[in-house]
Design a protein around this nucleic acid. Structure first.
Lengths: 197, 197
DNA sequence: GATTGATTTCATCATGCGATGAATTGTGCG
DNA sequence: CGCACAATTCATCGCATGATGAAATCAATC
């Protein structure tokens, strides 16, 4: 019951990292607007002002919490390098491996949780869709690339929402191998199948 | 510039309906938590207290705004009655027709926008998934119905998010016929195709 | 024409939010 | 030791929110 005194703490606790971790969990669990600076501070066992002291505004904290050390373009390189054959399966493999790693899942969840907020929508539409999936479609040399990649995106978005965000069973607990095997044909069909119209 | 005086207004304006319409648009456009009672009141050209007077708490207003006159179970009857053959296409047809009608789209969008909020997640998982899609799978007599219906759900969720929520082109403007033709085979495959594992 | 009740706004409360600036306590360096 | 600086909390501001109760205005009934 040591009442938290004022001033600097004894020892060398990495409070900054603690705040960052708490922010990551909060944003991943509740999204941006429903995660308050105060709640992050509480989870880190710290006063709210300290969060601002380290990270500035709440937006700054958010982008700090988002920082992944995985460049999506780089991670997707093997997908496009292998050519169109089997691209669906390779894409899904990369996708699932990233999402099943907690380290990367938390920031991604935070982004996806912003799906209902204006800024989050822009991030998803312009950032993820246009700057990540778009180039993949171009690099694969697809005809009607925008349409095909949007279809692929809809498939992946559905997977993310149902498996990782809503956690609906049995999809949430399905082993990744089975997941890849289930979705790969569909994605491949969107990539090189015949499109109606 | 008639400063809104106090007291009852002249004429017989259906203010209650105006509030309800404003609420529907607000909730559909911004979701529950980001739509304030005050903003609804402003959109209806009315004081915030009046909203409470007519509808009680904000939660009450939300459920009032959600009331659809379409019972999902009923709308899905033709899907299950036709048997497994072509069920994917029929399901998609019902789905798209409901979502392309503005009357029904607004409430549905409001629900989907709650995808990031705890209460909304429960509604989607337990309400939509379990009470709507679940029975369809059972009625179709699917083997491994939970798995198949969850896969179908992931496909439909992805479609909803990309087309109606994020409005990513060219999916957002794709004619419904083309949409059905594109997705029907995939849904049908989830329903009666061979599942790995 | 007076009364009653429905409709509408005003004033206000309590709460939680993001943010800032001052004050306090510890660490490390000379 | 003493001094500068970093780390930390406290007190507070301004704002928006959901909600309530009283007052004012209009319509309808007797």
């Amino acid at each position: 019951m040591s009442a938290p005194r004022r001033g600097r703490r004894p020892g060398a606790p990495d409070t900054r990292a603690a705040i960052l971790a708490a922010a990551r969990e909060g944003f991943a669990a509740s999204g941006f607007s429903r995660t308050s600076v105060r709640s992050v501070a509480a989870a880190a066992g710290v006063d709210a002002a300290l969060v601002h002291h380290y990270f500035g505004t709440k937006d700054d904290l958010f982008v700090a919490a988002l920082a992944l050390r995985v460049d999506p373009r780089e991670a997707l390189l093997p997908v496009v390098e292998g050519g169109l054959d089997g691209a669906g399966e390779r894409l899904l493999r990369v996708f699932v491996s990233v999402w099943d790693d907690e380290e990367t899942r938390l920031p991604l969840l935070a982004v996806v949780r912003g799906i209902a907020e204006p800024a989050g929508q822009r991030l998803l539409r312009d950032g993820v869709m246009r700057m990540v999936l778009g180039p993949v479609g171009e690099a694969l040399g697809l005809d009607d690339a925008p349409r095909r990649m949007t279809l692929v995106a809809s498939q992946l978005v559905g997977l993310v929402v149902v498996r990782y965000l809503l956690a609906v069973e049995p999809l949430a607990s399905m082993p990744s191998e089975q997941l890849v095997a289930t979705y790969a044909p569909v994605v491949q069909g969107f990539l090189d199948g015949v499109l109606p119209g």
